[in-house]
Design a protein around this nucleic acid. Structure first.
Lengths: 262, 262
DNA sequence: GTGATCCTTTGATTTGCATCAATTCGGACG
DNA sequence: CGTCCGAATTGATGCAAATCAAAGGATCAC
């Protein structure tokens, strides 16, 4: 029995409920409100069936549950359907490095296609549901559908770029710049999902933010209060309101602007 | 007229000279000594022809020449044939962030498959030759050759992982750990190319190393001398000799070991 | 060969953030 | 409703690496 929560995506719950009535295990991309963000985006309507043939309805995951970890044999990529996911690398020493946060419609596992096991650990940040794409079938299908293959290349390429952006943030930017950049990234991703870009709830803890951005928790906390005192944001716990988006954008660009002048 | 240098890859020069005698523009993967590192690695012998049909012999680039930059429309991926390449992102402010170094057999441009223009700037670090894979033809071919498609996925996935590793290095490790890790990475990559893993010439300037690792040039210089004083390496200019590989490995692991103990 | 330019090294000083320490807040649960 | 434990905040201190400054070295053009 699959339980669905809507987690701030009310228009989706309905579609999913409909799907369940017709076919409990096979996911229906046609009915899914995320089809304009997820893999279906890339396939023609008449090919959507073949994508639906390979996708499996994943189960629900509670907050903190692992979807896979680095000892799990790599079998599938997962699209987030509702909720959100954190991926991180755990080193031999038990150190964690958060490598990404994934929101509905985003594909998790693209970094694992070159090995026998997953290259990272994926953990549900809240109650989360996913769709599963078995990699063998997916590769077979992308071989037949050039548009889908093209889209896979685009997605992976985008992930490389994102990771480079992160590296840049880590190596060149101050704590304030990093946090402003993260807030703006989340904002635009919420917006694309038809949620408020200025008023949202952070899916992750301060600790995850700190780890992701290469900072100490204390620093994250301090920057949040500083931003709050400057009137840029309003934050209470995980609830965040962006009060001055332009000023935040200015913060992220401050760095490059300064270095432009000499 | 294409000029070839052998740049420390003597066994290759001969193969290339042979190729030139038979077909000046079409590259011969069959004759190329890098075929066990590069894309041909993934295709059956009887499919090698179709790969050779799409690959174009690129021209030679002098040290410092751009192969492409962020204003170049994205058309092709490039395999390094000889020499080496540095990729970097140039921000609006003119700031540079080095995103990678590429050695013979490695594919440049995988991060650019999601946009109209290249996502980074590629610059020859020394006299360098490349093979060019037009992306449209490459995608068409990967649609026909599942093994090649699989290999592309692997390569892109690997690039995501590398970038995550870099992010981890940047956010968690000290200057010494970062530099030791880079030296060891270069070492193993030289080794795979049948060159000495302990005695090589750095293709990049200190500045590039610093930028790549998120450090100041001065810090890189200081760590090099410190390593030298400790008897780990011997370095004069770009010539480097790794005197104690195990000790270097210890340096990179020191971090995780320490954090394991409490 | 010689000057110009860039790259590298070395030293002195500053600083942003980590670390250590101590509350305070907030949700889970009996 | 109070108890408990992890999460978040705030303050004080220390340090690794940036920055500033200047001197060698290497490389190139002419």
């Amino acid at each position: 029995m699959i339980c669905i929560n809507s987690d701030g995506l009310p228009e989706m719950a309905q579609a999913i409920r409909f799907r369940q009535a017709t076919s409990p295990l096979k996911a229906s991309c046609q009915q899914c409100s995320l089809s304009n963000l997820c893999l279906p985006l890339a396939v023609q309507d008449n090919d959507l069936d073949s994508l639906e043939d390979i996708v499996q309805q994943g189960r629900m995951y509670d907050r903190g549950e692992h979807i896979f970890d680095q000892s799990t044999p790599f079998r599938s990529c997962f699209a987030v359907k509702s909720g959100s996911v954190k991926t991180s690398i755990i080193t031999e020493g038990g150190e964690e490095q958060v490598t990404g946060f994934f929101m509905p419609g985003e594909l998790v596992g693209l970094d694992s296609m070159s090995g026998e096991f997953y290259a990272c650990t994926a953990k549900a940040l809240e109650r989360t549901s996913v769709c599963e794409f078995p990699i063998e079938k997916l590769e077979e299908l992308t071989g037949k559908l050039p548009d889908l293959q093209h889209h896979m290349y685009r997605l992976m390429s985008q992930e490389i770029q994102n990771s480079h952006q992160l590296a840049m943030l880590l190596s060149k930017n101050t704590a304030e710049e990093r946090i402003a950049a993260l807030l703006l990234s989340l904002s635009s991703r919420f917006q694309r999902r038809r949620m408020s870009p200025t008023n949202f709830s952070l899916p992750m803890a301060r600790n995850d933010i700190a780890n992701f951005l290469g900072l100490a928790v204390e620093t994250v906390s301090r920057v949040f209060t500083r931003f709050q005192n400057q009137g840029l944001i309003r934050a209470r716990g995980r609830e965040v309101e962006l009060l001055d988006v332009e000023a935040l954008q200015l913060v992220t660009r401050e760095f490059s602007r300064q270095n432009c002048q000499h």
